[in-house]
């Protein structure tokens, strides 16, 4: 790899929520690095903590207990900034949020406000972070709408979100996220609510913008096909813990964690024989409040062992490939 400079490093991240029913360990010990100009995929099922991880990077979580480090490396030789140590409502994080690190949310239906035109919503972000006049901001907003593939952008500029389709609204979200040329884009299930042909368009758009702007992308999804198509490096999460992380080809060709193996076996591939029984994982994802101790996957794991009641170790399989599992440790 030509340049493998880290832009974002997450070390031993824990996010706990205090609920009436007890503490929910939404994220429990996550480590990963996002490299400049690369795409990191975070994959997992509901409740695995992938969205909480994303939101904690931008400090968007209400009253949570966050510990660990999230180091953001700004341009040049400046010291990295630990985002966890910043005040969630302070100016320092606000200067980064939306400018250096931007986010696209899952539902384009609910994440735009219905009472402003899309043009006003894009300009809000531009004028917050850049010292531009009204006219300049408007010109930039229209050029962003063009860039994300909205036809007739000048006319659509005055549209309200309800006048647009789901795919178009998601493009507006992307335009808002990209108008300040962020160095990191966090995309939280950006295509889940969309049709397949529109999904393909949006993913191609994110990919080409990533290359054009030399941007880093964190792609959060439950869909292994999206990961296979876009990510360079993958983190697999299960119930707040990191099951495995690896470069994308290695993960698909040589998965180590039983959860990753089972997930990859359970999806339908083009060469899966029709109408044959699919591999499946028994049971379902438990409630995060009742997560098992030790390895959280152990009550569904086909290779479960007595040792699994204790916290599993991180086993390295290569410079960038590791799995959190007892299976590879001799007794």
């Amino acid at each position: 790899m030509p340049d493998s400079q880290p832009i974002l490093e997450v070390h031993d991240l824990h996010v706990h929520f205090k609920m009436l029913a007890g503490i929910v360990r939404a994220v429990d010990g996550v480590d990963f690095t996002v490299e400049r100009g690369r795409c990191l995929g975070i994959v997992g099922e509901s409740g695995c903590g992938k969205s909480v991880t994303a939101r904690s990077i931008l400090r968007l979580l209400p009253s949570s207990d966050t510990s660990g480090q999230i180091l953001y490396h700004p341009d040049g030789d400046d010291e990295p900034i630990d985002l966890v140590s910043l005040d969630a409502k302070g100016d320092a994080i606000r200067a980064i949020r939306g400018k250096d690190i931007a986010m696209i949310f899952q539902e384009p239906m609910t994440s735009l406000t219905p009472v402003y035109t899309i043009g006003e919503q894009i300009m809000e972000s531009i004028r917050k972070h850049q010292d531009l006049s009204e006219e300049e901001a408007q010109a930039l907003a229209i050029s962003m709408l063009n860039k994300v593939g909205i036809p007739d952008a000048e006319r659509r500029f005055g549209d309200y979100p309800h006048q647009m389709s789901g795919g178009m609204r998601q493009r507006v979200m992307i335009a808002i996220a990209l108008c300040c040329e962020p160095r990191v884009l966090i995309a939280d299930e950006p295509t889940t609510a969309l049709d397949v042909t529109i999904q393909a368009q949006i993913l191609r758009l994110i990919r080409s913008l990533q290359q054009d702007l030399d941007m880093s992308v964190i792609m959060i999804t439950h869909d292994l096909s999206v990961i296979a198509q876009l990510a360079d490096f993958v983190v697999v999460m299960y119930l707040g813990q990191m099951a495995e992380k690896a470069p994308v080809v290695e993960l698909f060709q040589d998965p180590k964690h039983p959860y990753t193996q089972a997930l990859l076996r359970s999806i339908v591939r083009p060469d899966t024989p029709p109408r044959e029984q699919l591999h499946s994982i028994s049971g379902s994802v438990p409630d995060p409040r009742n997560a098992p101790s030790g390895c959280r996957f152990r009550n569904r794991c086909p290779s479960v062992h007595d040792r699994c009641v204790e916290d599993p170790p991180v086993v390295e399989f290569g410079p960038q490939h590791s799995a959190t599992c007892w299976l590879y440790v001799d007794e």
Binding site: V196, T197, Q199, L203, S225, A228, Q229, A231, L264
Partner: peptide, 10 residues
């Protein structure tokens, strides 16, 4: 437009 779950076939 079906995404194929194989990173070597993009």
């Amino acid at each position: 437009s079906v995404l194929i779950p194989d990173p070597t076939h993009r």
